[in-house]
Design a protein around this nucleic acid. Sequence first.
DNA 1: CCTACCGATCGGTAGG
DNA 2: CCTACCGATCGGTAGG
Lengths: 205, 205
Amino acid sequence: MAGRRSAAEARDTRAKILRRAADVASADGLEGLTIGRLASELDMSKAGVIGQFGSKEELQLATLALAAEIFRGRVWEPVEHLPAGLPRLLAVCESWTRYAKKPPFPGGCFIAAASFEFDGRSGRVHDELAKVVKRWRKTLAAEVETAVRAGELGADTDPDQVAFSLEALAAGANPARQLHGDTSAASWSLRAMHAVLGVPAPKAA
Amino acid sequence: MAGRRSAAEARDTRAKILRRAADVASADGLEGLTIGRLASELDMSKAGVIGQFGSKEELQLATLALAAEIFRGRVWEPVEHLPAGLPRLLAVCESWTRYAKKPPFPGGCFIAAASFEFDGRSGRVHDELAKVVKRWRKTLAAEVETAVRAGELGADTDPDQVAFSLEALAAGANPARQLHGDTSAASWSLRAMHAVLGVPAPKAA
DNA sequence: CCTACCGATCGGTAGG
DNA sequence: CCTACCGATCGGTAGG
């Protein structure tokens, strides 16, 4: 036991490491993620952890890729089948808000936290993060464009402006919930998103 | 030379350390702030740096206090003299946006970054940060209430909802500018804040 | 505010 | 994927 493993076992181990890495990084940041801590929490050796990835940076990139995949699975995939334009955009707001309210990681939305953590740095993690977020923004902006063409949103709507606003409002739910314990954070977030899209908010809660 | 210093010299040194600490922490986080790095950048010994504060946590708290003071000086104080309510609220949006566009620290707004960095942790830095942000939210919400009483905002306006939205939109300018290099981040932010306050945006840019 | 030092932990490697 | 190990750096202290 404890020697080299089969390819299938190695894949399992890799997945186990990444799950835990995402949990840790969601709370303590991608930089606060350390190989030694991961090893002890997983009852593995440091060499066993890092051997799967080669370097901490590769581990960070793989963790980011997992988080992006989970985000997509929880926010985009559930609404993908809906008609493009405003209906799907509103559904995204809802799945996004649900995601922010019950995040898959203990520290909340990983992407939002990492965006603020790495915005001032340089390197591959910064670059990859920028790519991931830009892709999501483009998805949102394209949806806004469709809604404008369908006449569901005003002709003077700026898709990039709307995409920026939605993202900022979604991200804001994170510190609101976790820093201040605001239980209404998700509902604030959703109502503000609705307002951006010109959907009237129901009176009171 | 290099022995004990007078009280006045010690104060100067303390201020110099904190300035640099805020610069470093704005880019690399309050946790990424290390005593050794600070010492070498300031051409001091580690003992000289930490001796002023006693522990890293105290240094983090002092850095946060400085950042909060600078924020207040750049965002609130310039508009404090204006009439309370919507006029002052709009002026806050402008000074806030200016602040986000030309931040006093290389890594952008310190408070926003720290909020996302520490929202999932516990301890004195988390608690103090929560206090600082809550104080600011209360200032905003009070201003909204004044505007509602003056009839400048609709009677069904929820002050906490508005405060949340403004803060999220201001914070969002940070990763937009630094992660994606969006030069329009500040203007997106301002226009979205205006929309929240029911102020019509000027057509196009 | 300095020198000199402490134990702990960092990322990572050699070799099996 | 483990043991055993590397140099570098971490936060912090003693003592002047």
